[in-house]
C-alpha cells in the first residue's frame, strides 16, 4: 500500500461522509436522523483535516532531549496543528449536538412526535 493511496483513500472517505451527511440533513424527515446526518457531516470535515496531517511513518512532534545540538527536521514529524484545530472543532460539534438534542426534547414534549411533517401538520392546526 503506497502512502499516496492512503492519502487519496482518506480524502475520498471524507468527501463521501460530507456528501452523505448533507444528503441525510436535507432529505430525512425524522429529526433524530437529521441530527445524525449533521454529526456525519461534521465528522467528514474532521477526517478531512486529520488527513491533511497524515504522513506515512512519521514520528510524534515531541522534542526529546538529545543533547544541545538536536536538529529538528519537520519532514520526520506529523503536523500537529490540524489535530489541535480538530479538538476544538469536536468541542464545537458536541455543543451543537447538545443544543440540538435539548431543542428536540422540548419539541417532543410538546408534540409527542419527531417526524417533521407530522409536527408541521400539528403546527398548522394549532394556529
Amino acid at each position: 500500500m503506497t502512502p499516496k493511496f492512503i492519502g487519496l483513500f482518506n480524502y475520498t472517505a471524507a468527501l463521501i461522509l460530507v456528501l452523505f451527511g448533507i444528503y441525510a440533513l436535507i432529505t430525512q424527515k425524522n429529526l433524530i436522523r437529521k441530527i445524525i446526518g449533521m454529526v456525519i457531516l461534521q465528522t467528514g470535515t474532521i477526517l478531512f483535516y486529520i488527513s491533511l496531517a497524515a504522513k506515512h511513518g512519521a514520528a510524534i512532534p515531541i522534542l526529546i532531549d538529545q543533547g544541545h545540538h538536536a536538529v529538528i527536521d519537520p519532514q520526520h514529524y506529523a503536523n500537529p496543528l490540524p489535530h489541535a484545530l480538530m479538538l476544538t472543532a469536536i468541542v464545537v460539534g458536541v455543543s451543537t449536538l447538545g443544543v440540538a438534542l435539548s431543542l428536540i426534547a422540548s419539541i417532543f414534549k410538546h408534540y409527542g412526535t419527531l417526524e417533521e411533517d407530522e409536527i408541521l401538520i400539528k403546527m398548522e392546526s394549532s394556529k
Binding site: G21, M38, T45, L103, I107
Partner: peptide
C-alpha cells in the same frame, strides 16, 4: 421558537461546516 431554532441550527451547522 424551538422549531425555528432547530432549523436555524441545521442550516447554520451546514454553513459552518
Amino acid at each position: 421558537g424551538n422549531m425555528a431554532s432547530l432549523r436555524y441550527l441545521f442550516i447554520g451547522t451546514l454553513g459552518a461546516s
